[in-house]
Design a protein around this nucleic acid. Structure first.
Length: 491
RNA sequence: CGGGGCGUAGCGUAGCCCGGUAUCGCGCCACAUUUGGGAUGUGGAGGCCGCAGGUUCGAAUCCUGCCGCCCCGACCA
């Protein structure tokens, strides 16, 4: 009715925006490229954050917080790093405003110019490594395992809600190790944490892999990533974990004494996921009726809608429903009882479907007489009648089934959209007509990668981990290749 | 930064060519009837028509300048 959603087939971008805006996740803000994350969207982020934060702590990390501002000079210490971020940095040049002498509000006070300009962090490697220099003297100080939850700013030319905003929320882990092997193990461990989170909580299947040199994080030796596939056939980088080698240690002179009392530079990693995950989550599961959220991170797992005639009947219903709510909550299920009298049941049904609540329970007088409730699942739209007896257990099973079903569906789509291709014609055809990942041979050069990108807009998403070795010929140049890599058009 | 679109009530819009203080729907407020898939009726409130100039007796409408947002591309998580 009032909240029509554009069909995916009609306009995929519009569909996505409709879900975010009408699903109550976020709004555009007064600042270009920046969004307001609304309570429901933020609850989703909190749910993700809680799971990840627990996993980080289980793997030995501690949270800390570093400044939003970074002295300009820090950023230029690592050559590749500044190269990668220079074009999208917001810069603070003054620290004071004053009344406009010509009237009309306030102006920047030219007297208040900063001696050294400050960069609003696009990422925190530099400020953190400048700090680690003071924290690390000996191998006994290692490993140093720190994470921070923060906002960062990257002045993007073109932004999209959640997927690419000028300011976004994320976590960034920054660790220091005594050996390269240990740092690499950390990098890969965190990649596994991300993959586990994506698959088992967000129900988003991912490909784990390594980036090609040109797609690497600025300043990294190796960038590992998890890549997900959206319903429109485009890939989304959902998380990255970098082995930084000794690049930042050297740039910031972070040395430690090893057991032999010799000085050496420490080995570093960094890894992060952002609110972009929310965008990916939306695009993997949702449909033309609205959001579809996996139970394990849905802010509301079960909504209960009462159906009644008159206040008397409702009072009776309230009493019984509160019992149900209590039972479900004690089983660890998050429940909302929507007894708001301003909206009628049909309106609520549509509303919670749009918001992607996994399970809806409708209860009326008739049901109570029969000791049952009507249960509807969001993923399949299936409705069933369940007895009050043993309801919590049945709902828990249903939530598990929904979680599994979402994953299975997404995985089936993903798997059927990894296409092996051996000729250039096929390569272009699959990208244009089918989409998804294309598994093809590549001669390993940046030039070829670049040419392929220019001609097809597809990039190498990753070289999958444990990639089978196989003789073949580069899709573009015909030069010899030892393995296939995954190409796709990406967000 | 290029191409396209758009700024009128909280939201979505009509009116603009052809100048006369603004239409409709949703939402909001009140009351009543309603409540198993987005209720109905009656009454009501709400507008610097993006901003600034100009033309005119008179501008949402014509002219000039500016600002903002969205979409598509180049760049990026």
């Amino acid at each position: 009715m009032s909240k029509e959603i554009t069909a995916r087939s009609e306009d995929y971008s519009k569909w996505y925006n409709d879900l975010v805006l009408k699903g109550g996740l976020a709004d555009y803000s007064a600042v270009r490229g920046c969004m307001v994350i609304k309570p429901y969207g933020f609850a989703l982020w909190e749910a993700m954050r809680d799971v990840l934060d627990r996993k980080f702590k289980e793997t030995g990390h501690q949270n800390a917080y570093f400044p939003l501002f970074i002295p300009k000079s820090f950023l230029s210490k690592e050559a590749d790093h500044i190269e990668g971020f220079a074009k999208e940095c917001a810069v603070v040049t003054h620290y004071r405003l004053k009344n406009d002498p010509n009237g009309g509000g306030v102006v920047v006070d030219p007297e208040a110019k900063l001696e050294e300009e400050l960069i609003v962090r696009p990422t925190s490697e530099t400020i953190i490594w400048n700090t680690y220099k003071d924290w690390i003297q000996s191998y006994r100080d290692l490993p140093l395992l720190i994470n921070q939850w923060a906002n960062v700013v990257r002045w993007e030319m073109r932004t999209r809600l959640f997927l690419r905003t000028a300011e976004f929320l994320w976590q960034e882990g920054h660790t220091a190790h005594a050996t390269a092997d240990e740092a690499i193990a950390e990098t890969r461990q965190m990649l596994e944490v991300y993959a586990d989170f994506a698959e088992n909580y967000m129900a988003v299947p991912v490909v784990k892999g390594v980036k090609s040199p040109s797609e690497r994080f600025a300043g990294a030796v190796d960038t590992y990533c998890i890549e997900a596939l959206m319903q429109d056939g485009k890939a989304l980088q959902a998380g990255t974990s970098h082995f930084l080698g000794q690049n930042f240690a050297k740039a910031f002179d972070v040395q430690f004494s090893n057991k032999e009392n010799k000085l050496d530079y420490v080995w570093a990693t960094s890894w992060g996921v952002s609110t972009r995950l929310i965008g990916g989550l939306i695009m993997v599961h949702s449909d033309d009726q609205g959001l579809v959220l996996p139970p394990k991170i849905a802010p509301i797992q079960v909504v209960i809608v009462p159906i009644y005639k008159g206040a008397d009947q409702k009072a009776g219903l309230d009493e019984k429903v509160m019992e149900i709510v209590k039972t479900l909550r004690s089983a660890g299920i998050s429940v909302k009882y929507d007894d708001n009298d301003n909206n009628r049941p049909g309106w609520k049904f549509a509303e919670y479907e749009m918001k992607g609540v996994p399970v809806r329970i409708a209860v009326g007088a008739r049901d109570l007489e029969n000791q049952v409730v009507e249960v509807a699942r969001r993923d399949t739209k299936e409705k069933m009648t369940l007895p009050l007896e043993g309801l919590a257990g049945n709902i828990q099973n249903l939530l598990d089934q929904i979680q599994q079903n979402l994953y299975d569906k997404a995985k089936q789509y993903r798997d059927s959209h990894i296409t092996r291709v051996d000729t250039w014609e096929e390569f272009e055809k699959v990208l244009d007509e089918k989409g998804g990942f294309v598994s093809a041979h590549w001669d390993g050069t940046a030039e070829t990668e670049e040419q392929i990108k220019d001609r097809t807009k597809a990039t190498i998403r990753c070289i999958p981990l444990n990639n089978p070795q196989e003789e073949g010929k580069c899709i573009l140049t015909g030069k010899p290749s030892k393995e296939r890599v995954l190409f796709a058009r990406a967000y």
